[in-house]
């Protein structure tokens, strides 16, 4: 696939990592897009910010640990990771508790990223 066609794709993930399958489904979409060398923004909003929390032990509920995959995103050249600042704050989280470096941004910046994207996927 020629990367001449590369598009800016923004993924917005808003769900907890293990309550249902959306977080994993969104992550799989991101990894597929990365294989096709698209320009990717990955934004975590609302409860989605929990996906990046360090110290997950989902084996207790027989779930596969997603956080290892998030930590590996830079290996896929997915470096533009964002968390909604208010979502982090409301949940008492801090950026140094995340498994991968992410930039905290306000909603206006999220709107800007969306407006600059060719395609937006929300799960």
């Amino acid at each position: 696939m020629s990367i001449d066609n590369a598009k800016t794709i923004t993924f917005i993930s808003r769900s907890t990592p293990y309550g249902h399958g959306r977080a994993k489904a969104c992550l799989d979409m991101v990894l597929s897009a990365a294989v096709f060398e698209q320009k990717i923004n990955f934004i975590f909003m609302d409860d989605g910010v929990w996906q990046l929390k360090k110290g997950q032990t989902p084996s207790n509920i027989d779930a596969k640990d997603l956080s290892a995959a998030f930590a590996a995103l830079p290996l896929y050249e997915v470096n533009d990771l964002y968390v909604e600042a208010s979502a982090i704050e409301e949940r008492g989280l801090s950026l140094d508790e995340l498994v991968v470096p992410a930039q905290a941004i306000e909603s206006a910046k999220i709107a800007e990223l969306i407006s600059l994207s060719d395609v937006v996927f929300t799960l």
Binding site: K7, M29, A33, F36, D118, F121, T122
Partner: peptide, 17 residues
Amino acid sequence: GLGQLVEASMMSDRVVS
């Protein structure tokens, strides 16, 4: 596979979810 969605995104004017 999901690659078909990514390829379609590249080839389409709009993706509607």
